[in-house]
């Protein structure tokens, strides 16, 4: 059963002057529990597609349905709230809040959802344990390695038990060992918790481990390989 339905998505930047077509009529279904990598050369539209699926950017035309909700029919405030409850984000540069500890970073999303403090702490601890950082809960991002920071970012993305996690080049800033560890951890979360992951990546190591690989070229899906 597909949790994400992307229909005829096009995105044209700079429409008034020199239009740049980033996406061109993309149709895509993502099912629950998928571990999907979106690959393609620079400028192929990977990040744009991810941003649109995540509700961070709006398409020039087309629609994105998440569990039957047409995301772009939502008003700005509802859309932000939708992201808070339904989508997890992992960014290339980790983007943790530097003044918060690892645990506080994970708890932050839950606190934004208005969950009770006890529940936030319990869930935060559980997730940090899952990503192998139970001994780093009180560490601030500056005290963690890149790989550890990205693990915290994954834990944060999973905190609210989202429908899916979007990860934009999550291994781009990591060394081989950290990349391998992060992928192992994410695959484990995918298999055990049926968490749906969608990546944009250039990294062949990620592509090799993905269960589905979408190749974008010039804003169109060239291949869709399910492994």
């Amino acid at each position: 059963m597909s949790i994400i339905q992307v229909r005829n998505i096009s995105k044209i930047y700079n429409k008034e002057h020199i239009p740049v077509r980033a996406l061109n009529g993309i149709d895509l279904d993502i099912n629950k529990g998928e571990f999907t990598a979106i690959v393609g050369p620079s400028g192929s539209g990977k990040t744009t597609l991810l941003n649109i699926i995540g509700g961070l950017d709006t398409p020039t035309e087309g629609s994105v349905n998440i569990h039957g909700t047409d995301m772009f029919s939502l008003k700005d405030r509802k859309l932000i709230d939708f992201r808070l409850h339904h989508i997890g984000f992992v960014f290339q540069a980790y983007n943790l809040i530097p003044v918060l500890t690892a645990l506080e970073n994970v708890m932050f999303i839950l606190q934004m959802q208005g969950r009770p403090h006890k529940e936030c702490v319990a869930r935060g601890m559980e997730l940090l344990k899952q990503v192998g950082l139970e001994d780093k809960v009180d560490k601030r991002p500056s005290e963690l390695s890149g790989g550890q920071q990205q693990r915290v970012a994954v834990a944060r993305a999973l905190a609210s038990k989202p429908d899916f996690v979007l990860a934009d080049e999550p291994t781009a800033n990591l060394d081989s060992k950290s990349t391998s560890d992060l992928l192992d951890m994410m695959l484990q979360l995918n298999e055990l918790g049926e968490t749906t992951f969608i990546f944009s990546t250039h990294d062949q190591r990620v592509v090799d481990r993905a269960k589905r690989v979408l190749t974008l070229v010039d804003g169109e899906i060239e291949t869709d390989e399910v492994r």
Binding site: D76, R77, I80, D81, R83, L84, I109
Partner: peptide
């Protein structure tokens, strides 16, 4: 960057 992240993950205006 941090403010952008907060908005992205669902911190409203």
């Amino acid at each position: 960057q941090e403010l952008g992240m907060l908005m992205a993950v669902g911190v409203n205006k």
